[in-house]
Design a protein around this nucleic acid. Structure first.
Lengths: 115, 115
DNA sequence: CGTACTGTTCGATGACTGTCGACATAAGGA
DNA sequence: TCCTTATGTCGACAGTCATCGAACAGTACG
């Protein structure tokens, strides 16, 4: 099962949980970066994301993402290998990961003809 | 146009904004209910959603949904007709509305076979 | 005009949350 | 064993947020 005490079974995850976890720019960036990396240790993800927050804060975000069912942690010696729970998420919320991967350019108004 | 000072142009809306707006159970319920109604006055939506919060609180949530680009308000006499900004959202975040419409049964564990 | 209906705005309040720094734990190497 | 690296936990603090009630504003109707 998914439930090893640290990762919630995907069936118990709600959209509110997921949206709440992704509502923070740091966490959304982390998820996107991790999606690009496939899987990586915390520290690699931390650096790859180019975050300026402290390690303890990152650990806090990581916990929220894990408890929201978005990421998986595999213990490998002294490090935790992180990965997106792709299969689980695709089965429970089809299309969600595609939406997350959407490039969001805040001022990309080139295709509009509005006032 | 979308930009009448009350509704943000859809290009300026970010995923963080949208996820933040949908992170609250009341607002997620409101959006889902409104999606089912098509369009309706605030009060009808309020009652249809079966909410127990006060009107002023609902008005607060409504404002957040509007400013996040999720809903549109059309003034019709003494009432505001609410509707989902379906076309805008489909073009900016394809698949998002489908994800929102996902039925979320918290204890539906019939399809899992994960490691 | 006055009453009812619809919806917003304001101030206060309690809860939640992101952040930090300091400390703890665990593994690996010199 | 000691030191370094990797990561989590704890306590504190400041900022944000959901909620309420009361007051306010616009419209419809008699």
């Amino acid at each position: 099962m998914s439930s090893d005490g640290r990762h919630p079974p995907i069936e118990t995850v709600t959209l509110t949980d997921v949206f709440g976890a992704l509502a923070d720019p740091v966490r959304l960036l982390a998820v996107r970066t991790l999606a690009g990396l496939g899987s990586s240790p915390c520290n690699d993800l931390y650096r790859a994301a180019g975050l300026t927050i402290g390690r303890s804060t990152f650990s806090h975000h990581q916990k929220i993402l894990r408890e929201a069912g978005l990421i998986h942690e595999r213990i490998d010696g002294a490090r935790r290998i992180l990965s997106i729970r792709t299969d689980d998420l695709d089965s429970r919320f089809p299309g969600l990961l595609a939406v997350i991967a959407t490039e969001t350019a805040p001022h990309d108004g080139t295709t509009t003809g509005r006032s």
